[in-house]
Computed example of a mutant assay.
Amino acid sequence: MRLEQHSTRGCTLTLKIKFSDYHQITRSKTMPYYTRELDAIITTATALFEAVEMENRSIY
C-alpha cells in the first residue's frame, strides 16, 4: 500500500464515484486520528459508499 511505502499517514479519506452517465460525485470523511491501518480505511470507505444513493444508476 502506498501509505506504508512512503511511511506516511492520513486522516481524510475521499471516495470518488463515476456513474455510467458520466456524472461524478465525491464523498469524504475526516477521521479524528491519523491512520494507515487498512481495516480503518476499508471500514470508512465502505460506510461512504453505502451512504450513496445509487438511484438505479450503474458505476462506470
Results as ranks from 00 to 15, higher is better:
Ala51Lys: 05
Lys29Arg: 13
Arg2Ala: 03
Thr43Ile: 01
Leu38Gln: 04
Tyr34Leu: 03
Tyr34His: 06
Leu3Thr: 09
Tyr60Asp: 15
Thr8Tyr: 01
Ala45Phe: 03
Met1Thr: 12
Thr14Cys: 11
Arg2Thr: 11
Gly10Ser: 05
Asp21Leu: 07
Met54Gly: 04
Ala45Ile: 04
Ser20Arg: 10
Thr14Ile: 03
Val52Ala: 05
Ile41Gln: 11
Thr46Gln: 12
Thr46Glu: 06
Lys29Met: 04
Thr35Phe: 00
Thr26Pro: 01
His6Gln: 11
Arg2Trp: 10
Gln5Ser: 03
Tyr33Ala: 07
His6Ala: 03
Gln24Thr: 14
Thr44Ser: 10
Ile17Trp: 04
Arg9Val: 03
Thr44His: 05
Ile41Glu: 12
Tyr22Lys: 12
Met1Lys: 14
Thr44Gln: 08
Leu3Val: 09
Arg57Ala: 04
Ser20Glu: 15
Ser28Gln: 14
Thr44Pro: 03
Asp39Val: 00
Leu13Asn: 13
Lys29Asp: 06
Glu55Ile: 00
Glu53Ser: 05
Arg36Glu: 14
Glu37Leu: 00
Leu13Ser: 12
Glu4Gln: 02
Ser7Cys: 05
Thr12Leu: 12
Asp39Glu: 04
Ala40Glu: 14
Leu38Thr: 12
Ile59Tyr: 04
Arg9Cys: 03
Ile25Thr: 09
Thr30Glu: 14
Ile17Ala: 07
Tyr60Pro: 08
Thr26Cys: 02
Arg57Asn: 12
Thr12Phe: 11
Leu38Ala: 13
Arg36Thr: 07
Thr30Cys: 10
Thr44Ala: 07
Arg57Gly: 09
Ser28Met: 05
Tyr33Leu: 07
Tyr33Val: 02
Asp39Ile: 00
Arg9His: 04
Tyr33Phe: 11
Ala45Gly: 15
Leu15Arg: 03
Thr46Cys: 03
Arg9Leu: 03
Cys11Phe: 09
Ile41His: 08
Ile41Arg: 05
Phe49Ala: 13
Arg27Pro: 02
Ser58His: 08
His6Trp: 08
Thr35Ser: 06
Met54Arg: 05
Thr12His: 13
Glu53Asp: 14
Ala40Cys: 03
Lys16Ile: 02
Leu13Phe: 09
Ile25Tyr: 15
Gln24Asp: 13
Thr44Tyr: 02
Tyr34Cys: 02
Thr26Tyr: 03
His23Trp: 12
Arg9Gly: 00
Ile59Cys: 10
Arg36Tyr: 07
His23Val: 11
Asp21Cys: 10
Thr14Tyr: 10
Arg36Cys: 08
Ala40Met: 05
Gln5Met: 05
Thr14Gln: 14
Ser28Leu: 02
Lys18Ile: 15
Ile17Leu: 11
Gln5Asp: 08
Tyr33Gln: 14
Gln24Ala: 13
Ile17Lys: 01
Met1Arg: 10
Met31His: 08
Thr46Gly: 05
Tyr33His: 12
Arg27Glu: 12
Ile25Phe: 13
Tyr22Thr: 09
Ala40Ser: 12
Leu3Gly: 09
Pro32Phe: 00
Leu15Gln: 10
Leu38Trp: 08
Ser7Trp: 01
Lys18Asn: 15
Thr46Val: 01
Pro32Gln: 01
Ile25Leu: 13
Arg27Trp: 02
Tyr60Lys: 13
Leu13Asp: 14
Arg57Ser: 13
Ser7Tyr: 06
Arg27Ser: 07
Thr43Asp: 11
Thr30Met: 09
Thr44Gly: 08
Ala40Val: 02
His6Phe: 00
Ala45Trp: 07
Thr26Arg: 02
